[in-house]
Nucleic acid binder design. Structure first.
Length: 258
DNA sequence: ATGGTAGCGCTGCTA
């Protein structure tokens, strides 16, 4: 089984690349972030023709998450716990059963700056995500929480800790919030295989960051212990960040035997 | 060409 996550930064703008990438990477399940599509604007038919069904939590101009699968989709849950009105919350999480796996596709709030309300929202949202896991799953289940976390877990995941000093994505409270989430029973699948620095999944569109290798690793697939024990490989598909009209994020893919 | 925001949507916000 092969599962990927990709922040596409507008599925509409990315659709030609996304379709080409699907054919090449042949994932069974893809967690998508930043569809930037209204709920009813998702390209269900085009993906159906490629063998994928989809469940989408859309908003419109911003956010929007989806899971597409060719191994089944059951019992979708929109959003996370902690909102009084899930119907009106931002479209940042969708959970669904894909065959034997519980999948959660997340788009964690950016944070903007460490002294902003949006940053406090980010920390609150991560705590709510943990409550969501506690409510719906057990650590002994086959669970994957994948997406754009907008957090570089350690300095190894940052092109220059000095340049990022004092900004979001690297601050202690958000890294702690990520550790608290993982404490539930999740491991970073890429770090199961690789320990080195310089593996990135996001490069700013501005200033040619990709070509200067100025990136961050903020997209990952967190897997529960039962899945960790059957992982075959994990990789960042950097080729998907090259060429014409790339997203600012590269896909991350894991393959495991189940 | 040793280069260099992108997307949404229509003005500025978000990332």
């Amino acid at each position: 089984m092969r599962v990927a996550t990709w922040n596409v930064n507008s599925l509409n703008a990315r659709m030609p690349r996304f379709v080409a990438w699907l054919k090449e990477a042949e994932p069974d399940v893809v967690c998508i972030q930043e569809t930037k599509l209204k709920q009813d604007a998702f390209p269900h038919l085009e993906l159906e023709m490629l063998g994928y069904e989809a469940t989408h939590f859309g908003q419109g101009q911003w956010n929007g998450v989806a899971v597409i699968s060719r191994v089944g989709l059951k019992n979708p849950i929109f959003g996370v716990e902690g909102s009084d009105n899930p119907e009106s919350e931002e479209a940042r999480a969708i959970s669904v059963e894909c065959g034997a796996i519980e999948i959660v596709s997340v788009y964690v709030p950016n944070g903007r700056s460490v002294d902003s309300d949006h940053y406090r929202y980010k920390l609150r949202w991560l705590a709510d995500l943990k409550k969501h896991l506690e409510r719906h799953y057990k650590p002994t289940d086959n669970v994957i929480v994948a997406g754009d976390f907008n957090i570089a877990p350690t300095d190894k995941d940052v092109w220059s800790p000095q340049a990022l000093e004092g900004s979001t994505h690297v601050s202690r409270p958000e890294r702690q919030a990520l550790e608290d989430l993982m404490e539930w029973g999740l491991v970073d699948s890429l770090r199961h295989f690789y320990d080195q620095e310089g593996i990135f999944t996001w490069w700013d569109h501005r200033g040619g960051a990709f070509h200067k290798r100025q990136g961050l690793r903020i997209d990952y697939l967190l897997v529960s212990k039962p899945l960790e024990s059957c992982l075959n490989w994990a990789l960042v598909d950097r080729n998907a960040r090259k060429g014409t009209k790339p997203s600012d994020h590269a896909p991350v893919i894991i393959d495991f035997s189940i």
